[in-house]
């Protein structure tokens, strides 16, 4: 499935604010390094993400570029 939260890892400064406000605890600071030497945040549990957008609202560096929600399936 497509990612619900698109994170620009180069912009992330690893402040951890998105992790602190996530109501479903689906974000974490990853082990990766970006070119500035920060560990960027990552979405590790895409299925449980509810697309509330709190991470986008609190992100000070506009590193969270998009938040998407699944369209309801009509039958």
């Amino acid at each position: 499935m497509e990612k619900k939260v698109i994170i620009n890892e180069e912009r992330c400064k690893s402040c951890g604010l998105c992790v602190s406000v996530c109501p479903k605890h689906v974000l974490r600071i990853s082990e990766k390094l970006n070119s500035n030497g920060y560990h960027p945040a990552e979405l590790f549990d895409n299925d449980n993400c509810i697309s509330c957008g709190f991470c986008y609202l609190i992100c000070p560096d506009a590193a969270i570029e998009e938040v998407r929600r699944l369209e309801p399936v009509r039958k």
């Binding site: 500035n36 986008y56 609202l57 000070p60 506009a62 998009e66 938040v67 998407r68 929600r69 699944l70």
Partner: peptide, 18 residues
């Protein structure tokens, strides 16, 4: 997928110095 939030256009590609 429906876009809920998107980075606004006037924010440039330059990384902030904060």
């Amino acid at each position: 997928m429906k876009i809920i939030y998107k980075k606004p256009e006037p924010i440039t590609k330059t990384h902030t110095t904060y």
